[in-house]
Design a binder for these strands. Structure first.
Length: 857
RNA sequence: GGAUCCUUAGCUCAGUUGGCUAGAGCGCACGAUUCACAUUCGUGAGGUCACAGGUUCAAGCCCUGUAGGAUCCACCA
């Protein structure tokens, strides 16, 4: 294959991916095995929605996870990156129900099994898109082990866990107040409810006492939801509230009804708030529910699952929607002269995170997990540092969350999900049994007939078991090495995986957690379909290359922080890869043109060669340190600098003279390997294009360090300083032209004249005697270098020089001040003090040189 | 009500146990020209590190407070 002039990603990426996939490199078993088999690296992909398309957040996820996977694969560890596809229970259900609506149908036209089959087909029509997109992003995951969240092995494990929880009495069936969306007709876990600050009204309503006294005829309660008074069962006051002390135990007449309800004492009532008296509606308010439990009060449901008032509300109100009922009740209260005032307030109201409908707390029988024991174990593991978090602050946040977690409602009233394997005795509603025959509506057992619970599991109940499901708890691969996911999933997913992982496997499901922030749009706004600012990762990858997208996404991004997407970073990355492409093209050309050098042994003969090998070594070591700490952005910067500013600008420019073919080949191989995790496609494409490379880069070995002569490397650094200094003078001096470079008594300059001439494009003029030289003396310590510049031009240079002398003087002052400070000398590390002294003397020499330079002018 | 994060160059952001003259990309200015690369090469300008105190020999980094921005949690009638 011939190198084209520019890198055209789209032309190579699909083929390269196919090459990897066919090679078996994605499977952990196919990695090199040595005598001392290193520990496996396992990472589980957060399963993307099976019937959706990937968004930019997936782009970031895949970038981070695949960098780790490829890095550890190169390091020789058996790596296992496990992909998944999510049935995305509620998400998909919402989409499907919308489709039904458009077709003029509703969920109530079908049985659960029919609906399940329909959604299954619907999902499988779309399925495959996201898997192709993962390939386009370069995810080197083990496709043979792709798991769909409704696969039999998933449900089997989930049922086993459910049974175990059941047997351990950690699952219970309970009638509790649940968060209910009346539009979607399903319950939610607390965490799925979105609370928003809203303006509302606090009404004051008078409840007349049945036995009024002179001092007290009525009690006034405050509420934001007057319609619920129809379900009131008591009025609570604080036990310490002197205003009401005498009437505790009395009764009031519930307005608009003929019921009488007691006045009770409960500390839920805050004497400071409103009138200090609060109406108790256990069936429709979480606090009131708690109060009712404490006082064994009746719970009257007056709102049904569709958000309308029930018969319990009385003939006048039954059938009305909540908001209609509120209007009517307010009107009726006014007529009854019981409305005592209103106040505008802001309060927090729960909404459905999907349709924004106000969440109605309803009394429903559901399955609950008693989370306390699970959470306590998770908390203990976290406190015991069994899991390391990046960023570290997330650990504490998770502990706080777990410490105040309420029992977890895992029942969902939607057909698309894993059916709950529980059946109820048709003759005894308290008799529930566990059975996995969920395909049958009715089963018999021990001569009794049982009816299936039609609910499905909360998706997080099964997702919470994901790591041990997909790894099958294989030794060495479970616990997984790291869990990488979005910071928004800390509680609902990461927390649950830890709880269920510990419960089922007795081990934490992962050793480390890396959480990325959100990818915002270029203006720093959250992306959303409605705003129309969504960036499609596949589009960007198509335009600039998958590698450029990857590097662009991780650049300047740190753990847990939300950050704007930046096209300029993607372009910068694309440019780097084009640069690398041309570096490779150039080296291939040198290899082709110098066949006689090809078989030579690898030796370092020039200063630049020791220097670049030192730099590559440094990058190699530094890269490992950074990736150990998940510092992706810094790692990418390091590689950018190595390849462009060091390898291309200095080493390759020098090699135009030396053409050390074996070294060019070796260094290029090393650089391609180091970069491969960050830019898999371009590095592999180059690898395949080079004439001398074998096999595939993806399973290459991580490079060993070069043996280098560090003093030679240091000398080349000095040359860089000298050459940069000379170039800078050429630019700043008035009048174009590169002036001859004269020097005396300067071995480094003598020995590297050719290189200096090449890199400065000006002639070197070695002199034997200092007296022979005229011109501008460069202010470089330990060197005697002069630019032979005509005197009239020199004078114009004076001003510039004076400024630099002043600046240097100031720097010397600060150093001197530091060294005069006895405390510094005493308390700072000796190495640091020595360094400061060395630096000072260097600067002083430099200053001397510059002063001389000034004198000459 | 509680908690967390952010504020560093014109823009987007790095800056890990405090330690030389605070970095990168983009943008900007100036110069180069077809010899691997214009998706190029060279040179440069640009920063009271939000503000005010404190700890320290030494603070962008640690502590306290203030201001502005963002997010999360929570049952406030």
């Amino acid at each position: 294959m011939k190198f084209s002039k520019a890198y055209e990603p789209g032309q190579y990426e699909p083929d390269v991916y196919a090459l990897w996939e066919a090679s078996g490199a994605f499977s952990p078993k196919n990695n090199k095995t040595e005598n001392n088999q290193p520990a496996p690296f396992t990472i589980v992909m957060p399963p993307p929605n099976a019937n959706g398309n990937l968004h930019i957040g997936h782009g970031l996820t895949v970038a981070l996870e695949d960098i780790l996977t490829r890095y550890y694969r190169l390091k020789g560890r058996p790596t296992w990156y496990i992909p998944g596809a999510d049935h995305a229970g509620f998400e998909t259900w919402v989409v499907y129900e919308r489709k039904l609506e458009r077709e003029g149908k509703s969920r109530f036209d079908f049985t659960r099994d029919e609906l399940y089959a329909q959604v299954w087909d619907f999902v499988h029509e779309q399925r495959g898109n996201m898997e192709l997109q993962l390939r386009a992003l370069g995810a080197s995951c083990d496709w043979d082990n792709l798991t769909f969240t409704l696969d039999p092995k998933v449900t089997e494990t989930v049922y086993k866990t459910f049974k175990r929880l059941w047997d351990d009495r950690l699952i219970y069936r309970g009638e509790k107040l649940v968060n209910y969306c009346t539009k979607h007709q399903t319950a939610f876990a607390d965490i799925e409810v979105v609370h928003k600050e809203e303006k509302g009204t606090l009404w004051q309503i008078a409840y007349p006492l049945t036995n009024p006294t002179k001092n007290c005829q009525e009690i006034i309660v405050s509420t934001t939801r007057p319609e619920t008074l129809l379900g009131d069962v008591a009025v609570a006051v604080s036990p310490d509230d002197v205003r009401y002390k005498n009437i505790i135990g009395e009764k009031v007449k519930l307005p608009l009804t003929d019921r009488e309800i007691p006045i009770i004492a409960d500390e839920h009532a805050d004497p400071e708030y409103g009138t200090g008296a609060v109406k108790i509606t256990p069936a429709h308010d979480p606090n009131d529910y708690e109060v009712a439990l404490r006082h064994q009060l009746e719970m009257i449901t007056i709102i049904d699952q569709s958000g309308k008032l029930t018969e319990n509300a009385g003939d006048a109100y039954a059938g009305l929607t909540v908001s209609d009922a509120r209007q009517k009740i307010l009107l009726d209260l006014k007529h009854a002269a019981l409305l005592r005032g209103e106040k505008k307030i802001t309060h927090s109201v729960g909404h459905c995170y999907k349709c924004d409908t106000i969440i109605e707390p309803l009394l429903k029988e559901q399955w609950f997990v008693n989370v306390k024991p699970l959470a306590n174990r998770a908390i203990a593991a976290l406190k015991n540092n069994e899991i390391k978090f990046y960023p570290a602050s997330k650990k504490r946040a998770l502990i706080n969350y777990l410490e105040q977690l309420h029992d977890w409602n895992i029942s969902r009233q939607i057909p698309w999900g894993i059916p709950i394997p529980a059946f109820q005795n048709q003759d005894d509603s308290s008799d529930w049994i566990f059975d996995t025959r969920v395909n049958e509506v009715k089963i018999t057992k021990n001569g009794k007939t049982y009816i299936r619970d039609n609910d499905t599991f909360d998706t997080w109940f099964s997702s919470g078991q994901w790591p041990f499901i997909v790894t099958h708890q294989q030794k060495g691969y479970y616990p997984t090495s790291v869990m990488e996911t979005g910071a928004d999933l800390l509680f609902q997913w990461v927390g649950r995986m830890i709880m269920l992982g510990l419960y089922v496997t007795d081990e934490v499901p992962f050793r480390e957690v890396y959480m990325h922030g959100m990818v915002l749009d270029e203006q720093g706004q959250k992306m959303s379909k409605s705003k129309g600012n969504v960036i499609n990762p596949i589009e960007i990858a198509g335009k600039y290359g998958s590698d450029a997208l990857r590097m662009g996404l991780i650049a300047s991004r740190s753990a847990g922080v939300n950050q704007a997407f930046s096209t300029s970073k993607v372009i910068a990355s694309r440019n780097l890869y084009n640069k690398l492409w041309n570096i490779s093209r150039f080296i291939q050309q040198l290899v082709d043109e110098n066949p006689e050098k090809d078989s030579l042994e690898l030796t370092l003969t020039n200063l630049s060669e020791d220097w670049i090998c030192t730099e590559i070594n440094r990058a190699n070591k530094e890269l490992q340190k950074l990736l150990d700490k998940y510092r992706f952005a810094e790692a990418s910067e390091l590689l950018y600098d190595l390849i462009w500013n060091k390898y291309a600008d200095w080493f390759l420019e020098s090699e135009k003279l030396w053409k050390n073919v074996p070294l060019l080949k070796s260094t290029l191989e090393q650089i391609l390997t180091l970069l491969h995790p960050f830019a898999p496609f371009v590095t592999e494409t180059i690898w395949q294009n080079l004439s001398w490379t074998d096999g595939i880069l993806i399973t290459n070995a991580w490079p060993n360090l070069y043996k280098v002569n560090s003093s030679k490397a240091k000398q080349f650094s000095e040359l860089i300083t000298i050459i940069s200094n000379i170039r800078s003078h050429y630019q700043s001096l008035p009048g174009a032209g590169n002036y001859p470079i004269a020097f005396h008594d300067d071995p480094l300059m003598y020995q590297n004249q050719l290189l200096i001439q090449h890199l400065t494009k000006s002639p070197c003029v070695p002199k034997l005697e200092k007296s022979e030289i005229t011109g501008l003396h460069l202010a470089i310590p330990n060197h005697n270098i002069y630019l032979q510049i005509p005197t009239e031009i020199l004078t114009k240079h004076r001003e510039n020089l004076e400024q630099r002398i002043l600046k240097l003087g100031a720097e010397i002052n600060t150093l001197e001040a530091r060294l005069r400070n006895p405390n510094y000398l005493q308390k700072a590390p000796t190495a640091l003090v020595a360094e400061t002294k060395a630096s000072l003397s260097e600067k002083e020499t430099l200053l001397e040189n510059m002063k001389q330079e000034l004198k000459l002018i």
